[in-house]
């Protein structure tokens, strides 16, 4: 697989920590784009701030590195101006659900044709391991040294509730599944939301499990299950993986184009 064709190799080796899952997600995204046969010139990658948001720097597409949490707002602008482009927005869990929480729910409500990828590592990695909205109860972080008491967001339920027309979840352990979901999400006409559970060995791992990146990845195999699996009935704690929502709805940029055309006819 010629992954290197899609990289800005002058920035390598990349700056993510050893064992960080963000590189695995980037590799799966590249493979999905390769599988779809998209032209480099037709892909725009927009990000906010955080570890996850370093991704556009490494990818050789049209890329934008924008304000914290505002990646979806910038991406909406790009999509409205050039609806023929494929807009992909990689975000971190804090970037998507805390700082940019409102942008996320409104992009989902509008059903604009953007692919949002949330890399959920349960912590703010870049700033030193503070609790994020997805840090599980009792997990430790810099700001919760005795254990977190805030209930965590279920991002898939959030996206479903906000009206996203494609919602899926995968993990870094399931690389092929993740790649297939990216392919489906990019092909989907409408707002597609993919949550990828990933490992932050430096902060989350060190403060909680104290184990290697591999052990953190292996945990995704035992703590998750496919949608509809009987295992979920035996152990309700398991996190479900798969495509939760895949439906057709009017797309925002196309209804905007329709309105412009109608106004032109009236003149």
């Amino acid at each position: 697989m010629p992954v290197k064709r899609y990289l800005r190799q002058r920035f390598f080796p990349q700056l993510w920590c050893a064992g960080c899952g963000h590189g695995q997600i980037m590799a799966s995204l590249i493979r999905a784009i390769e599988e779809l046969g998209l032209q480099k010139n037709n892909v725009v990658v927009v990000s906010g701030i955080g570890c996850s948001s370093r991704m556009p720097g490494y990818l050789d597409f049209h890329t934008l590195h924008t304000l914290h949490g505002r990646a979806l707002a910038f991406a909406t602008g790009v999509k409205m101006g050039r609806p023929e482009l494929n807009v992909i927005v990689p975000m971190g869990d804090g970037d998507a659900s805390a700082i940019g929480g409102n942008h996320l729910i409104h992009a989902a409500r509008r059903n604009i044709n953007i692919t949002a990828i949330v890399m959920n590592n349960n912590i703010y990695g870049m700033t030193g391991g503070q609790s994020s909205p997805t840090t599980p109860v009792a997990a430790k972080s810099t700001t919760a040294p005795l254990g977190n008491i805030d209930p965590a967001f279920d991002l898939v339920e959030l996206a479903k509730g906000a009206g996203a027309s494609f919602v899926a979840r995968s993990t870094t352990y399931h690389s092929k599944e993740m790649q297939n979901m990216f392919v489906k999400a990019i092909n989907h006409k409408g707002f597609s939301f993919v949550e990828v559970l990933t490992q932050c060995p430096t902060y989350y791992g060190r403060k909680n499990e104290g184990v290697s990146p591999t052990e953190m990845m292996k945990k995704f195999a035992t703590t998750t299950t496919s949608i509809g699996s009987p295992k979920k009935k035996e152990n309700p704690e398991l996190i479900e993986r798969g495509v939760f929502v895949d439906q057709e709805r009017t797309e925002y940029a196309s209804s905007y184009c329709e309105m412009i055309n109608q106004m032109r006819k009236q003149k």
């Binding site: 992954v3 993510w16 695995q24 092929k176």
Partner: peptide, 14 residues
């Protein structure tokens, strides 16, 4: 090819 799929540094190619 699992090593290639899972390498976070994109350092492995088959």
């Amino acid at each position: 090819g699992l090593c290639e799929l899972r390498c976070p540094d994109l350092a492995i190619t088959l």
